[in-house]
Amino acid sequence: MQGFLASWRLYGRTDRMLRNIFGILAVLLPLLLWSAVSYLPFVWHPQVLITDPGGEEYLETGMRMNRADFARAVTEMQEQHQPVPQGIPSNPVYLPSPGDVLSAFVHAFTSSAPVGAEHSITQAFAHSIRIIFWGFVISSVMGVPLGIMCGSIPAVARLVEPSVDFFRYLPAPAFGALAVAILGIYDAPKIAIIVIGTLFQQILVIANTTRKLDFSLVEASRTLGAKGLRLLFRVVIPGILPDLYRDQRILLGWAWTYLIVAELIGTSSGITWFITQQARYQHFDNVFAAMALIGIVGLGTDMVLGVVGRKLFTWKRENG
């Protein structure tokens, strides 16, 4: 109990068990809230799902209407002595219950049949991941070396950084039409959008990281006879590697945010397209399942990368 209170204080202490408990609660509490809203009719349920239209002409089974309107319809039918419409309290269509989403999620992995007119979630998602992967790889191949050079060679920084700063402020979607005109309508312009969205930030972020290398290490290596490429490869790059790795993790998340734009240009495709299509059909359970998939994969990748990073850079742990 004391430990529990201490963990709420500013810079307080926590032990391992409490941290785990909080970690589990972090997932459980939102789920519980969602379940409560979905399954306990008295919590919200502002609408009524019609199960039997009764005598009212404009009602149909499966329709949703506001509770007040439904009550009016019921009294109207009672006054006219016609069959009374029946219905159950329900949430708006855009808030499916956890159970529905879970079953849509499971369905996506178990059945190979397409959901709706388009591909299945998994197919769409695999396509998205391919776009992200190539976009990020191409961006990194250019951005990482350029960023390191900007951070370590003043001339390169002066030459490159002003124009990078200029392009950084142009929103990536602005390049959409141009990318399609140049690269066609399939995957190439989508990858290009990811690259444009990531590259310019990447150069600046990595240049900054390179500049933050403890300069006394560079000076020490110089007095030991290191210079030129050997200074770069033996001191600068190993010295910034843990921070570079962390930057790449953050930038990968950045690349994901451009996916939405990328997939809506040319021939729409991928998980974003899937989500918009399913939303149009009001299959919100599929929409939520797809969103959950993105979140889970994103979080999972980041956690794996974090663990790998800690394993790779044990020397960094002591100095924060």
Partner: peptide, 20 residues
């Protein structure tokens, strides 16, 4: 001209390469 290995230096700060 510039630093060289004929003049070794030990700094006030700890400057061992932390990754080695």
């Amino acid at each position: 001209r510039g630093p060289g290995s004929d003049r070794g230096m030990v700094f006030q700060k700890y400057t061992l390469f932390p990754w080695l």
